[in-house]
Design a protein around this nucleic acid. Structure first.
Lengths: 216, 216
DNA sequence: ACGTCTATGGGGGTAGAACCCCATCATGAA
DNA sequence: TTCATGATGGGGTTCTACCCCCATAGACGT
């Protein structure tokens, strides 16, 4: 537990709209030496305000909150308090969402299903200047490399297949011929290694395309 | 806040393998007058032991824990402490799982995404002798009535479709002819009001057939 | 006994999906 | 300039799903 510069107390802000999670997280933070909870927020706007007011060393950020999304809070944090490290804390396990966050340069990423030891390890690592992506998240992203092989057009066709459209309907919607739809369709399913629409839907599910509800 | 018999303190056990949830839930329980936390458990076996030892008035039970599932804990609770009320507390939102629990006679059901006020209301209601199913869960179950129309055979065929099998493959696996597969297939898709495998997969997703990971 | 439902299965036909071949054009990188 | 890739699209064929008709047998309730 060795934050640089000796006994300086590191400040932490917790942003999550669920009190259950905030309370549980506070307990874990309290177990880390030389840290202090300087604020908490239950929605996106409060989170932005807390970051502006406290300029914390660390922000624990829920992905989706009312009034401003995790992405927005993250952007404002970078603008108003660029020294603040950010740890994403998400109940979502969709690969698409997680891989988007990887590219933001965020310092840490955790699933809410991670155990307290792991959460503590992540927080300490990030406060010590390192990065920490939960192993579970790393594994999930590895399984998503095939998706990144798809061209933009193939993704569009896939999303319309997933939405239940026939090839003819897809052609109408994209203003292309059925032959072209068949082409893209065959190509994307080959890249993803699937032979049926059912299998394709499982891939879409893993990418979070079927999710419409939030998990804690 | 009027538990019968005046100032008797009601005892509560919390069983959840995630410390975050246990800590957050403890805070809510602490906010309810005349209740006392008599134990907590982080896996199924501990939960069973806690119920046996404490005979609590209320058990807050996570659906899936290591070493013994929620179903098993529930059964043991009914056996060793039949006076104990049980509130299910789940991060899963799959309709199939929730509808199964409805039939157990459980006293309360909550999603972990429910707000603290709602959680408190549920706990108080159950401690007062009533039942409480979160409105979100009630809504979800209403949308699942079509599924209950399916015959056993239709479900079997559906599960094999969902798994990506062709009609021929399904026939082989169930030792029936393709004609029969087609018959069941057309029938189940008609009952569910879907015209494509993609649409069918969305139904399967809502039933929890695609889920293989636990949400907090 | 009769009616309903479920499970089973056949014949026949058609539309759509899947897949093979071929091709052109535009863009970007080497 | 050449090459590779992506987007587009045609011809042709086979296979599968879907849908219509028909039917039998068994179980269950009235």
């Amino acid at each position: 537990m060795d934050f640089s510069a000796g006994d300086i107390v590191k400040t932490i802000v917790i942003a999550d709209d669920h009190q259950i999670v905030r309370e549980g997280t506070k307990k874990i933070v309290a177990s880390i030496d030389n840290t202090s909870l300087s604020g908490e927020a239950e929605n996106g706007l409060e989170a932005i305000a807390a970051v502006k007011n406290h300029r914390p060393d660390l922000l624990i950020l829920d992905v989706a909150m009312p009034l401003a999304s995790g992405v927005e809070v993250f952007g404002e944090t970078r603008r108003w308090s660029p020294e603040t490290k950010v740890v994403l804390f998400t109940g979502f396990t969709s690969v698409g969402l997680l891989s988007n966050w990887i590219n933001t340069g965020i310092e840490g990423m955790l699933l809410k299903s991670c155990g307290p030891e792991q959460i503590r390890e992540c927080l300490v690592t990030v406060l010590n200047g390192g990065n920490y992506i939960a192993a579970e998240i790393v594994d999930m992203l590895k399984n998503s490399e095939d998706m990144s092989e798809l061209t933009q057009r193939e993704r569009e066709v896939m999303s319309l297949i997933v939405a239940g459209n026939s090839n003819a309907e897809i052609g109408e919607k994209l203003f292309i011929s059925i032959k072209t739809v068949e082409k893209h369709r065959g190509s994307l399913m080959g890249k993803l290694g699937v032979r049926s629409v059912a299998d394709l839907m499982v891939v879409a599910h893993k990418e979070g395309w079927l999710d419409e509800h939030k998990q804690l």
